[in-house]
Design a protein around this nucleic acid. Structure first.
Lengths: 99, 99
DNA sequence: GACTTATATCGGTTTTTGCCGATATCATCA
DNA sequence: TGATGATATCGGCAAAAACCGATATAAGTC
């Protein structure tokens, strides 16, 4: 059940916050000066804002990714994460009809 | 955060199944002969189908109820649970705009 | 009131999740 | 190639969730 994995990923306060931040990265991460936001936001910026350790935030991001809610792009030494809006649209439909 | 409670309630295979069964109680619970389904399905029937203990199923149903996903009606010695479709509609909208 | 049936609640044990620090990997740059 | 910075992964501990059996409560029957 893919849905189960998605709901588990959404069952954590910090992970929900990360998803919200990624919704409007320009406002949520004004310190990410370089490179714009076409690839999303890098782990370090998210970690700063979350106030948890690097390892925890990295793990949370891969949980979100395995659930399909975000995608990642490696650029040099940085990994950028961004929301996968399609997944949210699908999820909304799943809830309307399949749950 | 109410959403968090909802997602936690949905983060369990059995609870997801129960919600699915309650979507079409006539088909899912053909043994509930008495009283029709206007109040939903009683705990005992759900327990039988879930194959878990009575206490576990009772707890699961109250988790779903606290999250607002089902409502309960006591009729005599039985407690009937049914889906709260409005909650699912709201959740679908929350995912479209608030997550 | 004593007995039965349906459900809820209370302790427990095991598994999973939420974090952490330490270490490994990967890319960059001198 | 050696040092540095960014991220991933690994091992652990504490808290929460997933169950269970036993017991309590509520309703119905005699």
């Amino acid at each position: 059940m893919k849905q189960l994995e998605i709901f588990k990923a959404l069952s954590n306060k910090t992970r929900l916050e990360i998803l919200l931040w990624l919704k409007d990265p320009e406002t949520s991460f004004p310190d990410q000066i370089y490179s714009g936001f076409e690839f999303g936001v890098c782990v370090g910026q998210i970690q700063l804002k979350a106030g948890l350790t690097q390892s925890t935030v990295s793990e949370y991001l891969s949980i979100l990714q395995r659930a399909g809610l975000v995608t990642s792009t490696r650029v040099g030494q940085w990994t950028y994460y961004k929301r996968n809006e399609e997944a949210f649209n699908e999820l909304s439909k799943i809830i309307e009809s399949d749950i």
